[in-house]
Write a protein that binds this DNA or RNA. Structure first.
Lengths: 217, 217
DNA sequence: GTTTTTATTTAGGTTACCCTAAACTAATGA
DNA sequence: TCATTAGTTTAGGGTAACCTAAATAAAAAC
C-alpha cells in the first residue's frame, strides 16, 4: 500500500464511507485532486478489495478497508499524543506532522508507542485511539449541526484539519466546552451557540459546524 | 524531494561520495536497483544540484547534497535513539523503522526530538548525531580493514544494515569492544582478530569488515 | 417531461521511478 | 596493440499517480 492509497482510505473513512456511499467529488475536494483521478484510484482500490464502488454513485469501504483505515487513524492519533505531550507541539501543529509519520509506522512501532504513552484513550483533538473505541465514539457523539436547539451538550471532538482548528480557536471553542445551540439558520448557513464557560453568544457557519462533534451532558 | 531521491543521496554519502566519485554499480548494488536506473536518477540529481556526475566515472555529492545527506542521517539516528531508549527496540531492529521515519521528519520535529532525547552524541550503532560531529568522527575513525596488525583499537561504529548487524552479533562483536587485528589474508578475504573482552580469536570476512569502524585506544 | 445543470467518466497526455536488451566505453590482459 | 571483459549508457517499455478536455449520465429545475 502506498501512502497515497492510504490517504484515500482514510479520507473515505472520515467522510462516512463505512456506512454510506461517498461521492467522488467530496474525495476530490478533500484531497485537492481532480475527479477523474479519484475515479481511477477507486477502480484500483476495488481491485485490491478495500473499496466497493458503484459508478456514478460513490464509494464505500469494505470491511477490510474499514479496518485498514482505523489502523491508520490509530497511528495518526498516537503520534499526535506523543508530539503534544512529549515534544511540546501545540495542538494546531501536530496534524501535518502526524499525517506524514502515520505512513511510516509499522504495527510493531505503533504498539510500542502506545505502550510508551501508557495507552491514552484520546488524541489531543478528542478522537478515540483504540480501534474498538472508534465505533463506540461514533455512536455516542453527534455532529453539532444535529444537536437540538436548547439542549446542552459538550464538545467532545474536533476533526483535525489545520484550517478548521484555526477557525475554532478563533471562535474560542475547544474540547470539553459546554455549549447549547440557540438558533440554526440554514439560509445564512449560521449556527448560534451559547457558550457555557464564557457565557457568551458565538456564531459559526453550519458548514464548519459539521466538523465539531458533541455529546449529551 | 521524494523519499527515493533522499535514499540515493544517503547511500552516496555512505559510500564516500563526499570525497570520491562513487561508481554507479555500487549504488545499484546497495539499493537493489538496475544500473540504468541509477544513471537516470543521477542525471536528475545533477539537474537539481545535489550531485556532480561524470559519465562512466561516477557521482560525487555537491556541498548542498552533502548537507542534505547529513541532515537525513541525523534524523535517522535520532529516531534510532528514541526507538531503543524509549520504546525498547533492540539495536538490530531499529534500522528499518528509522529508515521509514527519517523521510517523514520535518526539521522542526527533528529539533524537538533531539531536545527531548537530551542531545545524544551517538546513535545506538555509534554514529555521530550532530552534523558537525559527523565529519570529526570520519577523521578520527578508520575502517577495521585499515587497522595495522598488532595495534589495539576499539570498535566505535557499525554501519547500520540489518544483515551486517546480524553478522557482527553472530561473531560477538559490539560497539566499545577492544580488538587487535592479528592477520589479514586478502586471498581468502579473511581478517583475524584478537577480541579483548572475551580473549578469543575471531575471524570475519574482509568484505564485511569494511563496515566496522575503529578508533585508536 | 424536457431542459439545464452538475457530477462522473472516458480519452489522451505527463512525470517519476522502475525494468530489460542492446550498444557503447573503458579497463584488463594476452 | 588488439581482444576480451566489466561497467555504463541508450533505447524502448511498464506502472502509479497525477492532469485537462470532451463525452456521458444523473439530478434538478422548469
Amino acid at each position: 500500500m502506498s501512502p497515497t492509497k492510504e490517504d484515500y482510505l482514510k479520507i473515505l473513512f472520515e467522510l462516512g464511507g463505512r456506512t454510506e456511499q461517498v461521492p467522488n467529488k467530496e474525495i476530490a475536494n478533500r484531497l485537492n485532486i481532480s475527479p477523474p483521478t479519484v475515479t481511477e484510484m477507486m477502480n484500483s482500490l476495488v481491485k485490491s478489495g478495500w473499496v466497493a464502488y458503484t459508478p456514478y454513485k460513490g464509494s464505500k469501504l469494505t470491511r477490510e478497508g474499514t479496518e485498514y483505515a482505523k489502523k491508520l487513524i490509530r497511528k495518526h492519533r498516537l503520534w499526535e499524543v506523543f508530539l503534544v505531550k512529549h515534544l511540546g507541539f501545540s495542538i494546531n501543529e501536530v496534524h501535518t506532522e502526524a499525517e506524514m509519520l502515520e505512513h511510516a509506522t509499522s504495527t510493531i512501532l505503533a504498539d510500542k508507542l502506545e505502550h510508551y504513552l501508557d495507552y491514552p484513550a484520546h488524541c489531543p483533538h478528542g478522537g478515540a485511539i483504540s480501534v474498538e473505541h472508534m465505533d463506540a465514539q461514533e455512536v455516542r457523539t453527534l455532529h453539532l449541526t444535529e444537536a437540538e436547539i436548547g439542549v446542552p451538550v459538550r464538545i467532545s471532538r474536533i476533526v483535525d484539519d489545520e484550517k478548521l482548528l484555526h477557525y475554532f480557536k478563533n471562535h474560542d471553542l475547544k474540547i470539553g466546552d459546554p455549549v447549547t445551540v440557540t438558533d440554526k439558520d440554514s439560509g445564512l448557513d449560521l449556527l448560534t451557540l451559547h457558550h457555557g464557560t464564557s457565557n457568551k453568544e458565538i456564531q459559526i457557519s453550519q458548514t464548519v459546524a459539521q466538523y465539531l462533534f458533541v455529546e449529551h451532558i
